[in-house]
Design a protein around this nucleic acid. Structure first.
Lengths: 333, 333
DNA sequence: CTGAAAGCGCTTACAG
DNA sequence: CTGAAAGCGCTTACAG
């Protein structure tokens, strides 16, 4: 492990010159630069990130805070963001918090991130006001994917519009008894999620009454969607269509219908949101959202903010698109 | 952002004592320790990782090198390993290299990892001898998941045995014309993968001749599996069963059969390896491998090696299990 | 039990 | 264009 001192000696210059030459700074003669570069290569010199960070105050690392990385949506975004950030010379510190409230608090409190990263990328979490304040207090730019937070850059889809699009598709097919499988339990968060809001709004716009008994919770998982759909299908007057707030839950719903002997789409139409990589395989109708683009965009927002801290804070809404496949069809008469 | 000096002043002690108190080192009186802890909490002090690393020579970070993080297998392992490492106080630096040969070289050359991490976790890559040497030269322990490398700790399944188990299941069902969809192209790597070796060996053990024309390449993706199966099914004398080296390729194969009007499992049996989270949903027969356990085990091997650098280097093979579902059935007569 | 001091390996004004 | 020097914020023997 050679140090900057070894390179300086080998090149016959001071360590200050080595630093300048290696960073491509001006005020180093071309001849000197070449000599330094050659010596560094010869010694396989790699600067110590710790020392550089301590001296410069920059870590050249970005922290990514997500509830999971082992779910399609998160993994896709992390992968694309990492690729973009690595190209720009930034490391990616991953904090995959799970659902543990304590871990979440620890991450947002700054214990985990303070002095460790230049910027933070938050995925799929709706931070509380306190959490927003804590992350902002870190001093670096913050970007969030999947939500909009004042003071932070953001990329997301219009959840409410996506939900309305899905419900509109079911209405257009003649369905009137349309169930909903949400991810979060609105009883716990006090505030219904945007996708649930969209579901209710589109029904109301069609002049249909709300059916609280047709709303279920699926926790954003296949098994949760399965359980929720099973429950809904057992009702005396079951829905003829289900809108799930994610493809994974929609897949579980399709499976539940199969298990219950309910034909899809003859007896039950199912639509999700995402266009999960397995959606085509399962012939699932869905409202597609671009995930790779969101990851790359978020990474670029962070890079821009790092480059120009006083620049504008973009808040981008990326488009969604209805993808009609085989799990939705005309309402049974 | 308070520093250790602020805490020292607030507590009325030296910075050395603050450091010792905060690290729980002996030779600090209980009263002093409490005073320091209180001051640190009051000031919301978080030690600078850069400064600590520079002074101690330890980064308290582990690098994870993987080709992807947006695939079920990798995402599951990264998630479980991260959780385990974070609990032990280690950060996780993620390098998701994609298939780019140059990025791979850069990661293994040490440019990316040198002086940045205390240990490295390699996922799903079969490093060359040079790459092994380069990572070993980093100085820290290395663990690998999915392969066995001399000098490194390792966790994996017995790929050859898993493949033989899958083929044995098909043979037991009476199949004799069994196709194979591999991930890697053996023409490119010169060496056939262990799963291909197992496929051939089990056929040979059953006294069946090899059928090179029944071996295809699917690149470990759904679409690759789809394309490979489509090709095999168009043969004059198509196979009655397909063994895919991963569930994702097997899923593509099932889809290809559906598109081709070939009944599964009446006309074609399909089996994979993994027990992907969607396998149950798709009713896919497979040879299951434990992924979370492999991630946790690898993390613990790293922690053990960090704790005791001269300890033994474990090389664990975790068990696989045949999971029979609906995509395999008796050979058509 | 506690502190003064050296040192980790860089970056960055400041001089020249 | 180049170097000497201060300083980033810690850890860790070494004294006492």
């Amino acid at each position: 492990m050679s140090t900057i001192r070894d390179v300086a000696e080998a090149a016959g210059v001071s360590i200050a010159t080595v630093s300048r030459a290696l960073h491509g700074l001006p005020r180093v003669s071309e001849a000197t630069r070449q000599r330094v570069l050659a010596a560094a290569a010869e010694l396989r010199y790699v600067a110590s990130p710790s020392a550089a960070s301590l001296a410069s105050g920059q870590t050249n690392a970005v922290g990514v805070v997500a509830p999971f990385v082992n779910r399609w949506y998160f993994a896709a975004i992390v992968h694309s963001a990492e690729e973009r950030l690595r190209k720009a010379g930034y490391d990616l510190l991953l904090y995959s918090l799970g659902t543990d409230a304590q871990e979440r608090r620890r991450a947002f409190s700054g214990t985990l991130l303070s002095k460790r990263v230049d910027a933070v990328l938050v995925l799929g979490l709706h931070p509380t006001a306190e959490e927003v304040a804590a992350l902002s207090a870190l001093g670096g730019p913050v970007a969030i994917v999947g939500a909009k937070v004042p003071g932070w850059a953001s990329v997301r889809i219009d959840d409410e519009a996506a939900a309305r699009c899905a419900v509109r598709h079911l209405l257009d097919l003649g369905h009137r008894r349309i169930g909903f499988i949400g991810g979060d339990d609105p009883l716990q968060t006090a505030m219904p999620g945007a996708r649930r809001v969209g579901y209710r709004a589109e029904l109301a716009a069609a002049g249909l009454p709300g059916h609280p008994e047709l709303e279920a919770v699926g926790g954003f998982t296949v098994s949760g969607g399965h359980a929720a759909a099973t429950r809904l299908l057992r009702m005396a007057d079951p829905p003829t269509a289900l809108f799930a707030a994610s493809d994974e839950m929609a897949m579980g719903a399709v499976q539940a219908a199969r298990h219950a002997g309910v034909g899809v789409p003859q007896d039950l139409s199912v639509i999700g949101i995402d266009d999960h990589e397995m959606a085509e395989l399962l012939d699932l109708t869905t409202v597609a959202q671009p995930v790779v683009a969101q990851g790359v965009l978020a990474a670029e927002m962070i890079l821009a903010a790092l480059h120009d801290p006083d620049g504008p804070l973009p808040s981008v809404t990326v488009p969604t698109e209805l993808v009609v496949r085989g799990t939705t069809g005309p309402a049974p008469r």
